[in-house]
Simulated assay, not measured.
Amino acid sequence: MLNVNTLRCEQVKRETERMTASLTLIDGYLVAGFGSSKGKNGSIEYSLVDEIEFFHEDAKWMSCTSELKENSYLHISGDKDYIYATSNQNETGYSTVSKICLANGQIMPCWKIKGHGWRVASDREDFAVAGHYESIFYQRNKDQLFLH
């Protein structure tokens, strides 16, 4: 990562077996989606951003847990109360849209989409996902799902 205070690139986390597929800053945390095309070792991890020293190579990373095992989490979007993530497609050809709760470290699957879930965008509880074969838009207050 580029430390904008010192203009130096600094290592945040080292991964040797997985790719870092998504990074975002949410409510003082750096939230990352990891995974690989082989094996069910996808994870969502987060670390508190130290505002004084910006990033530490030895920062403490916490992992979210889920009942589902994913190969990779491809994208993360949200704010402090509503965070969503998408995964790559599984053996059946579907990916998972999940809600992430950093407060209790949980990944809660909430929808499936055909193909890889390339991007997710959200506004509080509403979300849109651009997938490989289809896209969805969900509005919670109207309990409506639009599939394209």
Rank of each mutant, 00 (worst) to 15 (best):
M1Q: 10
L2I: 04
N3M: 08
N3L: 07
V4D: 13
N5G: 14
T6P: 10
E10G: 08
V12N: 04
R14A: 12
T16I: 01
R18T: 15
R18D: 15
A21N: 11
S22V: 03
S22H: 04
L23M: 15
L23E: 15
T24L: 11
I26E: 10
I26D: 09
D27G: 13
G28I: 08
L30I: 12
L30A: 12
A32I: 09
G33K: 02
G35A: 08
S36N: 14
S36F: 00
K38D: 12
K38S: 12
N41H: 09
N41D: 15
G42Q: 05
G42A: 09
E45Q: 12
Y46D: 03
S47Q: 07
L48G: 05
V49Q: 06
D50M: 00
E51D: 15
I52M: 03
F54Y: 12
H56N: 15
D58E: 11
A59R: 09
A59Q: 13
K60N: 13
K60R: 09
K60M: 12
M62K: 09
S63Q: 12
S63R: 11
T65F: 00
T65R: 11
S66K: 01
S66I: 01
E67G: 07
L68C: 06
L68T: 10
E70A: 05
N71K: 11
S72I: 02
S72Y: 00
S72C: 14
S72T: 05
Y73C: 05
Y73W: 10
Y73M: 07
L74D: 05
L74Q: 07
H75V: 00
S77A: 15
S77P: 07
G78C: 09
K80P: 14
K80R: 14
D81A: 08
D81K: 13
Y82K: 10
T86Y: 06
S87Q: 05
N88L: 03
N90R: 06
N90G: 14
T92C: 09
G93R: 08
G93F: 00
S95E: 05
T96R: 05
V97L: 03
V97H: 02
S98T: 08
S98Q: 01
K99T: 01
I100F: 04
I100R: 02
A103E: 14
N104T: 12
M108T: 14
C110A: 03
W111F: 10
K112D: 09
I113V: 14
K114D: 03
G115P: 05
G115T: 04
G117F: 00
W118E: 06
R119A: 07
V120R: 02
A121L: 08
S122C: 15
S122D: 11
S122M: 04
D123E: 15
D123Q: 13
D123S: 14
D123F: 00
R124A: 11
R124D: 15
R124Q: 12
A128F: 01
A130Q: 04
G131P: 03
H132P: 01
Y133E: 13
S135R: 04
S135C: 15
S135Q: 06
I136H: 02
I136F: 02
F137Y: 14
Q139L: 04
Q139N: 11
Q139Y: 01
Q139T: 08
N141V: 02
K142Y: 10
D143T: 12
Q144D: 11
Q144R: 08
F146Y: 11
L147V: 13
L147K: 12
